[in-house]
Design a protein around this nucleic acid. Structure first.
Lengths: 304, 304
DNA sequence: CTTATAAGG
DNA sequence: CCTTTTAAG
């Protein structure tokens, strides 16, 4: 049995203040993937990752993004999109910076290679490659940017276009990752914050969110494309085919969390063989009193 | 009897959180001058100034500087270096922006006119002009910027030079202000954060601070020049000629405040007639439990 | 509403 | 060590 969790922690220093260490100790996961670690090597607390082996791709933008994979057993291989990667063993004070293996980069992805948005590891526990992914939040296309809808200055759809370009390039990169994992005799599990909700079941206020970034038709169509070929399976949805949610993100504003007005934008997307092994999936809202971040961990047990 | 206090509040929103309102209510001052108010008109809390008439020169740099004079009675006149000034009566919700009177500007001062560093008012209570001044902190001259001394990147002495240029221009402006006050039949009281300590009595760790900005020979000489002609008198020092301190600023770092390892950089500088009226001076460290900011109020009673 | 940064202190 | 802005979420 392999327990794998994914959570966008939105700044590990803040999340540690809120009890991330205790959550890790109590959650008993074999693998935890993180998004938005948001710190440099120097700022990573020594004991941040408890008894786990940490693989961290911070990216080059200070204080932003940063994806990691924590695992009980030292990973058999580590790959990023060309960036160096930080490794730290359990209980070690020292973090070493090493060149990661690099898959063949798909067209268009290289310009996003140093942003701290993707890292994958081959687990020692099972014939399985686990990836931690953080897709851009994006923004609204120009024609939806009207004063009254937005607090921010209109950007002419720049963030939206960048996200769509990223999604396009990432789709190609993902096909490659699937192929390369298969060639290695491994299943692929893509975890993380996609910043896209798939269907009406995935957004509590779906009706009024149809012109919100993350639930735009083009974004939903993109995610649908990734899932419709059945080369990757949305594991949590497979186990909960008819429930609204379970949501994994709630706005900090107002009473969103208390009222469970959330979004399901954090996923386990697994190759079919692995997806069939998933026996239990839940979003972990049970952490004592406080939220760990604006996202909650998505925890899945795989019977491998 | 006129009680006048000056305090650098280092962000009025933070200071209000720490009980500035309670301090104002309990301190029973007739006039309070503030430095580093650090907010725009829109951010100024409606009840920030309790029962006082407020005169505020925010400057044009968002979130920085900003000097004010609070007075029980509405001031008879308000002057800045050309900037508009914000006025708010006691209990009023509304703040009005009005052109202030402008003294003749001395050579070199106009480039600093919109920084929110100087405002003066003619009190209704007494024949007295009270100014609130916030001088730049500055930095080290180039020859003292060695790695190991500084955490920050060396700037070639730019901040130091800018401060010295400001001091030079302000000395001229101050002479003018004195002259104009006298012409109006008023004493002049210059209060605020000069970011310069005068003598060894004014810096707890004076020996190791001799190469620190605020206690450099050139800065001390400048302040000495302002005081040595006896056209302005350091009121607190006059009443406490032999004591170390009383300090008005302590670093946030370490135990500086608890150990009283501070600096006296906040002053009441008065024309001689007024200075002779000062009967009591103290630095108010007595605020319940917390500090209001990194500075403490300097409170003087004038028997006018 | 929250997390970062950077500059200023 | 603390407060602010700014950008991002």
């Amino acid at each position: 049995m392999l327990r794998i969790a994914t959570v966008n922690i939105n700044g590990i220093r803040a999340t540690l203040r809120r009890g991330f260490g205790e959550w890790m100790a109590g959650r008993d996961a074999d693998v935890v993937t993180l998004q938005e670690v948001r710190c440099t090597l120097a700022d990573l607390p020594e004991d941040a990752f408890g008894g786990y082996h940490a693989v961290y791709e911070p990216g080059t933008i200070a204080g932003r993004n940063g994806v990691a994979v924590l695992a009980r057993r030292p990973p058999a291989a580590v790959r990023t999109w060309g960036a160096e990667v930080l490794l730290r063993g359990p209980g070690e004070r020292h973090t070493s910076t090493v060149p990661a293996q690099t898959p063949t980069l798909a067209r268009g992805i290289s310009r996003y290679a140093a942003e701290g948005r993707y890292v994958e590891v081959d687990l020692a526990d099972a014939p399985l490659t686990v990836a931690s992914l953080y897709l851009p939040k994006g923004g609204l296309p120009a024609h939806l940017q009207r004063p009254g809808r937005m607090r921010e200055a209109p950007d002419g759809g720049a963030k939206y276009q960048r996200k769509m370009h990223f999604l396009d390039a990432f789709a190609r990169q993902l096909r490659r990752a699937r192929r390369e994992a298969r060639a290695r005799g491994r299943d692929l599990l893509l975890t993380g914050d996609l910043n896209v909700a798939h269907t009406q079941l995935d957004v509590a206020a779906w009706r009024r969110s149809q012109q919100a970034e993350g639930f735009l038709p083009e974004e939903r169509a993109w995610l649908d494309d990734q899932l419709s070929a059945r080369t990757l399976v949305d594991v949590v949805r497979r186990l909960h085919p008819d429930t609204a949610g379970p949501y994994s993100w709630w706005s900090w504003l107002g009473q969103s969390y208390a009222l469970d007005v959330g979004w399901r934008i954090d996923y386990h997307l697994a190759t079919p063989g692995l997806a069939r092994c998933a026996v239990r999936a839940e979003v972990d809202r049970a952490h004592a009193g406080t939220r760990l971040s604006d996202h909650a961990p998505v925890v899945v047990d795989y019977d491998v």
